[in-house]
Simulated scan of single mutants.
Amino acid sequence: MANSAVADQLVAETRVEVSEPAVLLERLADHFSEHGDVTKEECKARLAFHFGTAELEIDGGYLNVAATASDASGLAFVKVALAEHLIEFSEPETPEIRWTGDCAAGSPVPYLRRMTVERVEQITPRMRRVRLSGDDLERFTRESMHIRLLFPPEKGGAYGWPVMGEDGRPAWPEGLPKPIARVYTIRRIDADEGWLDIDMVLHEGDGYPGAGFAENAKPGDEIGITGPGGGTYGQATRYLLAGDETALPAIARILEELPETARVTAIVEIADAAEEQVLVSKADVDLTWVHRDGLEPGTTDLLERAVKAVDWPEADPDTYVWIACEQAAVRKLRSYFRKEKKMPRANHMAVAYWRRGVAGEHAGEKDG
């Protein structure tokens, strides 16, 4: 079993039997290269994230995995990320995953918080801000911006609260429905005061539990959150930030955090002029709003054309591109910067926040 843990690190290990461990190792390394630093050898791989690390090693018909992190939440994140993708990439097999070590099965989920709606504010006709209050929010102030909101499965319905499962994923109590999880950006947070703001896009229809929650939320409502995870951006002098309205909360937060020495080109696709917001930044910002004006989200190339119209230097190490929108547009823009602009992976991030025609937690990276 691979194990590079050092003193004061939490450690968990598992040994997973699969029919093609080499194929599985390759798929895991390729996937996680988009989310962290991956070092791969012939029969081994090391995955390094800001919240922890994992070492994978082929041993006959088994894949040995050792996860390490400096705190329980980080270790739990490594375990759940690996478990989800070990299962996904092994289909149609269903591998048995049993972790040993720290953050054991039956223990509380360390990255879960129970929150209460404090207030609701209408930002634009299609964007609402929900302030959630709760305790022990310090970890949510760290580098990552994304959290999962756990919505009741039906209006006014109750759901149980999980513990850590044997496979590293949350185990939910029997007899109660599971909540519906969607990923959102923390717009603002004050851990000392015990609150965080979430900006939520309002959609029509029943396929958007976050929009339904935002539409009906009132002070005193309870909701769960897990995280944080993902949504970081690199350090640079010049930035290109681009996305649709689902990415607007993240773009607004990044702009507020950037220093006055930064130069930023920001492009945001929205429904119409009524959805424009005042975005504050100390940086030198050139902001462009792209209006669909009646066209459906995810059906145009407006954002793609606006991004490609920017005079962007090739292979400049002091630049960073951050893009988040519908999956098809993300793929085209990712290819554009990698193949045409020759931009190293370390200098850009392009993430699908949603996928047209597909609902659910894994339709993209976010629900809006």
Rank of each mutant, 00 (worst) to 15 (best):
M200A: 15
I180A: 03
T232V: 15
W172A: 01
N216V: 13
K178R: 15
G207K: 02
K178D: 14
F213Y: 14
P170G: 09
P209E: 04
E245N: 11
L176I: 10
M164H: 06
A217K: 09
G210K: 00
L202Q: 04
M145V: 14
G210Q: 04
E245D: 15
R187W: 14
R148Y: 07
I223P: 01
G212N: 15
P170D: 04
G210C: 10
I147C: 08
K218N: 07
P179V: 01
E222K: 15
Y184R: 03
G220T: 07
E222D: 03
P177G: 00
E193S: 14
D244N: 08
E204G: 08
S144C: 11
G224R: 01
I189P: 08
T185G: 10
G194T: 04
W172K: 01
T232N: 11
Y184P: 01
P173H: 06
I180M: 07
I180K: 12
P179L: 01
E143W: 09
N216W: 11
T246W: 00
D192C: 08
T246R: 01
F213N: 06
M164T: 06
D206S: 04
I186P: 01
E143Y: 09
T141Y: 06
G205W: 00
D199L: 07
L149H: 05
R187P: 11
A171S: 12
I225V: 13
P162V: 09
H146K: 06
G231Y: 10
A211N: 02
D192M: 08
R188Q: 05
G231I: 03
D136S: 14
I189N: 09
D136I: 07
T237L: 11
D221I: 08
G207Y: 02
L240K: 12
F213T: 07
P173I: 12
R148H: 13
D192Q: 14
K155Y: 10
L137A: 12
E245P: 06
N216E: 15
V183M: 15
D190P: 07
V163W: 11
G229P: 03
Q235N: 09
R188E: 09
D190A: 11
E215T: 15
M200I: 15
R142E: 14
W195K: 01
E245H: 12
P228W: 00
G207V: 02
Y184T: 05
V201Y: 05
K178L: 13
I180Y: 02
R139D: 10
Y208N: 01
G220S: 02
R182Q: 09
D167L: 06
